[in-house]
């Protein structure tokens, strides 16, 4: 669904990433690791078309990002759920509406079942905060809300950048559980994380592959962690 072929990217100056090849197929589960500043966030941004590669090709659902119009890109993003490292919300709307925002902007709010939203909020432990405004939430609560927002449209691909950075181990497992369930439904999952314990916990449940950015290249890490 998402294919990167010999991709390079630079923000000006030298290449940050080179010769990156990656295919996210339906039902695949990947972790992305690497030292801070290696380019994990950059790679994720390439995967949902926020960045255009400086070399190579990125294809989203079969379409080359360079050939996509802005509306194509918008429609593609409705099929890709993203959890950003710095979760941003509409600060004037309550959490529940923020989580439902992808439905609202795609005009699918009417046909959505409100019970799903409640259940999802319950799963990420935010039922009580449903009416709170985002600035009133803790860092971990924001991350959970961002994850809930990323999955509400039941997207084909979920890209999560450090989704468990600010939450305790128990909640991390709970969020992982949610992603694993979605993966079993055939969604492709890519999680950037430093948390090796989380990777181990996932490997116990699904066939997760671990990718590592080293020396500007994307490598398959072995089974040994």
């Amino acid at each position: 669904m998402i294919e990167l072929e010999n991709v390079a990217h630079s923000y000006g100056g030298g290449d940050l990433l080179t010769e990156v090849g990656l295919t996210l197929a339906p039902g695949s589960f990947h972790f992305l690791t690497g030292p801070s500043g290696a380019g994990k966030t950059t790679l994720l941004r390439l995967c949902y078309g926020e960045l255009i590669p400086s070399a190579g090709n990125v294809r989203l659902f079969g379409q080359d990002v360079r050939q996509m119009s802005r509306d194509d890109l918008a429609r593609t993003r409705q099929r890709i759920g993203v959890v950003h490292q710095d979760c941003q919300f509409l600060n004037h709307l309550p959490l529940s509406e923020n989580v439902a925002l992808p439905l609202i902007v795609s005009g699918r709010e009417a046909e959505a079942d409100p019970a799903n939203l409640r259940e999802l909020l319950h799963w990420v432990g935010l039922s009580r905060q449903a009416d709170a405004l985002p600035p009133e939430l803790s860092g971990g609560e924001r991350q959970r809300a961002a994850l809930a927002r990323a999955v509400i449209m039941s997207p084909d691909v979920i890209l999560a950048d450090e989704p468990t950075g600010n939450v305790d181990w128990e909640m991390s497992l709970r969020l992982l559980q949610l992603l694993v369930e979605l993966n079993k439904m055939g969604k492709a999952i890519l999680i950037a994380t430093h948390d090796l314990n989380l990777i181990r916990a996932a490997k116990a449940q699904v066939a997760a592959r671990v990718l590592r950015i080293k020396d500007r290249r994307l490598l398959q890490a072995g089974a040994n962690l």
């Binding site: 926020e50 802005r70 993003r77 409705q78 509409l90 925002l101 927002r149 449209m153």
Partner: peptide, 16 residues
């Protein structure tokens, strides 16, 4: 600007 960024990120089209 942040509102617009967030909307764009969750897949809102320009016209919206």
């Amino acid at each position: 600007a942040q509102v617009i960024r967030v909307l764009r990120m969750v897949g809102a089209r320009d016209v919206y």
